[in-house]
């Protein structure tokens, strides 16, 4: 289980953390800390000291040199909000050694990012499930194509718990500070049941199950995923078979081919 704590300040973090530890006393979850104010690393170091796996995601609207050196020194994950980033900021991302995720809802901003950001960024269409994306770092990863429901919890500063920050109303389980344990609440059970049912169906009927693990139960993107998967596999086969120059291909295709070749897994599928 991974837990995303979206906190305002150290005080709110302490409260959230205490409540979470009541719910998960034994299983040590991976914590993703999200903070959108000035970078205070108190919470991060406290969890690290206690031996918890922790990823610190700093949501930023602008990049300063100070922030870049702080992120590089402490290996922080920066979540850049692309829509509010300036051109100058995009150029500065080259200096980042740490994992960076760019979040955007604007297609044009995405194109701009592709042109300007060379290294350090995860080359993805950006969904709300940003931290999960950091964890996997694999290509073609949108929350519609993932099966994170039930594996991840988001806890905001007021203690509201939900499965997905994009669909808070649909997946809200309740408040962490309420007395009923979250695992016994009807919303939690119904969302999980829905997800399990979908996953089982996909497992039986779909050959692509190993790629998307059933997808998200809240969205229906099977057809789109199949199409995307098919075209990508075809493209890779074509490039490999005909020994086409990789320099003209997209980063996604190039990375997939090189990674598979380096591992010795490259084969022609059809």
């Amino acid at each position: 289980m991974t837990i995303h704590l979206i906190y305002k300040n150290y005080l709110s973090f302490q409260k959230q953390f205490k409540a979470v530890m009541k719910v998960f006393p034994k299983n040590v979850p991976t914590f993703y800390l999200h903070l959108d104010k000035r970078p205070s690393l108190k919470a991060y170091f406290r969890l690290k000291k206690r031996g918890f796996p922790v990823v610190y995601c700093l949501h930023v609207k602008a990049l300063s040199n100070k922030l870049i050196s702080l992120a590089n020194r402490n290996k922080l994950t920066l979540v850049l909000l692309a829509d509010s980033l300036s051109k100058k900021d995009f150029k500065k991302t080259d200096k980042l050694k740490t994992l960076t995720v760019i979040k955007t809802e604007d297609e044009q901003a995405l194109e701009k990012r592709n042109l300007l950001v060379k290294n350090s960024c995860v080359d993805q269409p950006f969904s709300a499930d940003v931290a999960e994306l950091c964890l996997l770092g694999t290509p073609i990863y949108q929350c519609a194509f993932s099966s994170c429901l039930g594996k991840t919890l988001y806890v905001d500063a007021r203690g509201e718990v939900s499965f997905c920050p994009e669909r808070i109303e649909e997946t809200k389980i309740g408040n962490l500070f309420e007395e009923t344990p979250i695992f016994e609440r009807p919303t939690f059970i119904s969302v999980l049941e829905k997800q399990i049912e979908k996953r089982e169906q996909c497992k039986k009927n779909c050959s692509l199950f190993s790629a998307c693990h059933g997808g998200c139960a809240l969205t229906d993107t099977c057809a789109k995923f199949r199409e995307e998967q098919k075209t990508t596999v075809q493209k890779i086969d074509e490039v490999v078979k005909e020994k086409k120059p990789l320099s003209g291909e997209s980063k996604l295709i190039t990375t997939a081919i090189l990674r598979a070749a380096a591992k010795g897994n490259l084969t022609i599928k059809k």
Binding site: V240, K241, K243, K244, P245, L246, S247, I257, L258, A260, A261, A262, K263, G264, N265, L266, T267, I268
Partner: peptide
């Protein structure tokens, strides 16, 4: 960029 990646993969495998 123009290499035979299938051959490279076979070599590693």
């Amino acid at each position: 960029a123009n290499s035979d990646y299938l051959a490279l993969s076979d070599m590693v495998r």
